[in-house]
Amino acid sequence: MTETKALVSGAWVPQACTLPTTEQPLRLAEFDEMFASAVVGVQRVDRMRVRLELRPEPGAAGRAADLMVRETRCCSFFTFTLTATGGQLALEVAVPAEHVDVLDALAARAGGDRP
């Protein structure tokens, strides 16, 4: 398991994250806002992948894409795949094995487990 540090109220980010510490609570708030407003389902695909079903709306797709691009700048271990097909919108999040704890925390928050 990787070294992690407490961020805000039980959230965890890996030591590998290069986002300045002062900006981390703001990024967490952006994720929480996206999860609350756009996520309608969370499915654990396998140990290293989670699929978030998003509201099939252009605004949700745009917000997710913007956030994912910025997130990969500081946590390059994430792989995000945004797919729009058949009237559905999904965001798949994958991590290498050493960052499964981060994925676990992300999936929990996306599913509504927020302080």
Rank of each mutant, 00 (worst) to 15 (best):
R109F: 07
E57W: 11
G41P: 10
A36V: 02
P56N: 11
T21I: 14
R49I: 04
A84L: 15
A97G: 10
L28H: 02
G86L: 05
Q43G: 01
V102M: 02
T18W: 08
F80S: 06
A29G: 03
R70I: 00
T81D: 13
F80Y: 07
S37W: 09
L52D: 00
P115L: 10
G62C: 13
R109E: 04
A29R: 09
F80T: 02
E33H: 13
F35A: 05
T21D: 15
V8M: 12
M1P: 09
R44Q: 12
F77E: 02
A90R: 09
A11W: 10
E3M: 15
R63E: 10
S9Y: 10
L91P: 00
F31C: 02
M1N: 06
P56I: 04
P25Y: 05
M48W: 13
Q43N: 09
R47M: 10
T18M: 12
S76F: 14
V100A: 03
A110N: 12
V42H: 02
S9P: 03
P25C: 02
F78Y: 10
G86S: 08
L103T: 00
H99N: 14
M48K: 08
H99S: 04
E57P: 09
G62Q: 11
H99M: 04
P115H: 06
T2W: 14
P96T: 09
A16G: 07
L82H: 05
R70W: 01
L28S: 04
W12N: 12
E30N: 09
A105E: 06
A16M: 08
L19A: 09
G111S: 00
